[in-house]
Amino acid sequence: MIELVELYVKYGRRREPVVRGVTTRFSGKHLLLGPNGAGKTTLFKAVCGLAPIYSGKVLIDGQDVESIYGRPKLLAVNLSEVYRVFYLSAYDHLRLFADLMCGDLDLALSIAEDLGLSLELLRSRKPWELSAGQQKALFTALALSSGARHALLDEPFEQLDPARKLRVVRYVEGHEGVLVLSTHETWVLNALKDWSVHFMFEGKVYGPLRAEELAHASLVRGEVEGALLRFEAAGEVYSIVHGAGGEPLSKLVSLDRIYEVTLGG
């Protein structure tokens, strides 16, 4: 289980916090939905111990992330920055991390192949020479094949074509252990109906709700009584309500649209 307690993250003393007072638990399969810039990636970095925690705590299986060392199979993530070690091929990086994380190299290669990354391609290119979508697929394959009890997948669908997105959905559905998947795309609500959903806006996390409940929910500007969830974005209060009456969440396509709604788009 990943537990966040009153977590604040900020880069530099004088800057505004990127993550603001987040308290929540991730113990099963979770979607973290939020527009670009909401703080999802920073939250993941904080869970990995990569972002400066200003106050609060991140506990993984009860242990403070600050005191965790040399623990393979505890947490895996698909952030590309943590997998750039040498000036070597993507294949060398894949086998290095499969080795260090006590993961399954064959499974990583098989997932990568399924997501369009042939062994030949991995041997001939360095990770940063792959396209953004290919990099995302590579590191998602690495995280999913690590056998870690907790996995964080940051925007795993980004830059992927629809066919590959569905393959990623299949892999994350079959993944065992705690999995938190962040995205700004709302179509996943229909694809992963039995998952729990947290929303993240401007550094704050709201929820959880069931994805099933949200598949037919709508977004309404202002406070609505009996709403499933209320949150603040761009200085406005929004409510997510059952049924029609607002902008259906599934039709938003991306939560970035929240700001367009604010502007009257």
Binding site: C48, G49, L50, I68, G70, R71, V77, C102, A148
Partner: peptide
Amino acid sequence: RYMVKFTR
């Protein structure tokens, strides 16, 4: 930093 925490 990631390696020393979450790998062997």
